[in-house]
Design a protein around this nucleic acid. Structure first.
Length: 565
RNA sequence: UGGCCGAUAGUAUAAUGGUAGUACAUCGGGUUUUGGUCCCGUCAGUGGGGGUUCAAAUCCUCCUCGGCCAGCCA
């Protein structure tokens, strides 16, 4: 390969954040140090949108020889719970990222942050406002018109210090006072109109218990926590862009280490939504079966559905990083998923909607063992034995009594291959009184045994099957997208996301016939059911010897597309 | 009638004044004991008007469109 070609191959596209970091390193900013953090609020489960941020922050640290902290932004005790902390840690680990011993909490810094507030008060840059919430709201003005200053704005430093101390000591009820920054009530940036820094909440905190009854707002805690941790690049989403001037103002006035905030567009995916608040509603209203329902875009839901961390990370890296609001096609996610699952999963035979087939010329009492390849993409996966006899099940989709032109599967008089077995031909169709097909009588050709190469005849289709005498019954759950519209979070005409649910997002099949080897499958084991899709043993409803399978994603289905037209 | 940010094929993302490229999707073909995978091909783009320049997706300007901001949420 020539030098030029090598260069081209090495030229991975660089996003604007990496470009900025490279520049900072070149300028020896922070002595060339790179330190990031992933800062979730423990008020819900992590979702696929977070995986972009997790991947970005941890990858950045790795690529530039730095570190990435895990920090919980737990400044609002009314919404945060230990359950969420635990799930978040589990999900990040599952994705494969490691914060080593750097597990931090904004609540660990409450003492420092309190002192920062005192510094601001002493500098005359913050004051205690005793206005009501309503008064503060009104006096803030509108984005297009300036606000007015609070009557409490010019309290003396001494009075502010005293009041703030008494706020801390629990002398007041919720809402009686707040601490505000003294900046500019006429600023065109609403965040600079004397933002609230501290509020009184007589509530227990999941970590600090009853130590505090005042809690810093996000704006008073986030940048300060970054600073304490010596974060060099504070990566966040676009909606915090308007907060950056305040972030910088506070850091400057408190005179502490200045991290650089950089904003990028959050991930949106078609046919789903990322709002934690709305996802919580789905859970609370019982629309889904918990945060880990396989239809949820949460990492725990996706894990239960059968997603792999590799698939999610490769997707997260593939969507790119930019500042434009984007809606990524869910097909891209599914592509990453299939791509990985195709390489790693063993193939198995499973019949979802069984149709009985009797091979009339196969000895009724005979059983033979046929060889099947576990994974054509991976030779080391080996082979297994499949029992075959005269009584089989095939999928109802693989038979049509009156097929259209391009239908290659089984139909009266037509011949197909049973994968890893023989050619069979449909000779007779048995129906019940209501005209429903209940059984097929077929003949097989002993010369066409799989692998022997003794037949030169060709068939246009190979279908999957199981032995009726050896298969076991199992429940299989077919999942589809939860929503029927591209962007369920922004519906029009007074509708909301609950009005655009896909009524067919879950179909439970309780009489599926699976090949025997599947019986001992363990929780979270993944397989490709030949010709159907990828399936994963459900971690919630399976029991020993009685696995329940979740469909992770279908195979690409060219026939379904042709058929649709 | 404020401020900030953004706009490149259907979708997402590159090109940092010099041949508009990649991935997904679509469509077509080849291989195939999965209508899968794999391989090959196809389709298709710089929001609009002015300006600077030998040369503009890129710089300037005006416009249009979209997002965010009026929590004691994050």
């Amino acid at each position: 390969m020539s030098n030029k070609e090598t260069e081209i191959l090495d030229e991975k596209p660089i996003d604007f954040i990496r470009a900025k970091i490279k520049e900072d390193i070149a300028n020896n900013k922070n002595e060339g140090r790179v330190h990031t953090r992933f800062p979730p609020e423990p008020n819900g489960y992590l979702h696929i949108g977070h995986s972009k941020s997790i991947n970005l922050n941890f990858s950045l640290a790795k690529e530039f020889g730095g570190k990435c902290n895990l920090r919980f932004d737990d400044t609002n005790p009314s919404k945060e719970e230990v359950e969420y902390v635990d799930s978040i840690k589990r999900d990040i680990k599952w994705l494969g990222f490691d914060w080593a011993d750097r597990e931090y909490y904004a609540s660990d810094y409450f003492d420092e942050i309190f002192e920062y507030a005192v510094i601001l008060i002493k500098k005359g840059k913050a004051y205690v406002d005793s206005s009501s919430m309503e008064e503060i709201k009104t006096s803030r003005g509108m984005p297009t018109s300036p606000g007015v200053e609070s009557p409490f704005r010019n309290r003396s430093v001494q009075e502010n210090l005293d009041l703030f101390e008494r706020m801390k000591n629990g002398e007041f009820k919720d809402g009686e006072h707040v601490l505000r920054a003294k900046i500019d009530m006429s600023s065109p940036n609403m965040n600079m109109r004397d933002p609230v820094l501290y509020r009184i909440k007589n509530e227990s905190h999941h970590r600090t218990g009853d130590k505090w009854c005042i809690y810093p707002m996000y704006d008073m805690a986030h940048g300060q926590s970054d600073s304490i941790e010596r974060i060099t690049h504070s990566i966040c989403t676009l909606e915090f862009e308007n907060h950056r001037p305040l972030y910088d103002w506070l850091i400057k006035e408190i005179e502490i280490f200045p991290p650089q905030q950089i904003e990028f567009a959050r991930l949106n995916i078609s046919y789903t939504m990322m709002s934690k608040r709305k996802l919580l509603l789905l859970v609370q209203e019982g629309i889904v079966d918990g945060w880990d329902d396989p239809r949820m875009p949460t990492l725990s839901g996706m894990r239960r559905a059968g997603y792999t961390p590799e698939a999610i990370n490769s997707f997260a890296e593939g969507v790119g990083v930019a500042k434009r609001n984007a809606l990524v096609d869910v097909a891209k996610l599914e592509h990453s998923l299939r791509d990985h699952l195709n390489k790693i999963t063993d193939r198995r035979m499973a019949v979802l909607n069984p149709l009985k087939v009797t091979i009339t010329n196969y000895p009724g009492d005979q059983t033979e063992e046929l060889e099947a390849i576990n994974n054509p993409e991976d030779e080391t996966a080996g082979i297994r034995k499949l029992p075959f006899c005269s009584e089989l099940f095939i999928d109802r989709d693989d038979f049509m009594e009156d097929p259209p032109k391009k239908y290659f599967r089984l139909s009266p008089g037509n011949e197909v291959r049973l994968k890893y077995a023989y050619f069979i031909k449909c000779e007779e169709v048995l129906k019940n009184d209501s005209g429903e097909v209940i059984e097929l009588k077929c003949t097989y050709d002993p010369e066409t045994k799989s692998g022997t190469g003794t037949s030169t005849r060709k068939v246009k289709s190979t279908i999957h099957w199981v032995s009726a005498r050896h298969a076991f019954d199992a429940e299989v759950r077919l999942y589809d997208r939860l929503f029927s519209v591209e962007d369920p979070a922004s519906t029009k005409d007074g509708k909301d996301f609950r009005d655009v649910l896909n009524p067919n997002s879950l179909e439970i099949l309780s009489a599926c016939k699976l090949e025997p080897s599947l019986q001992e499958a363990k929780s979270e084991d993944k397989f490709q059911f030949e010709r159907l899709g990828y399936f994963c043993v459900d971690s919630k409803y399976s029991s020993q010897g009685k696995p329940v399978f979740n469909r992770t994603v279908t195979l690409r289905d060219t026939w379904a597309r042709i058929n649709k037209k």
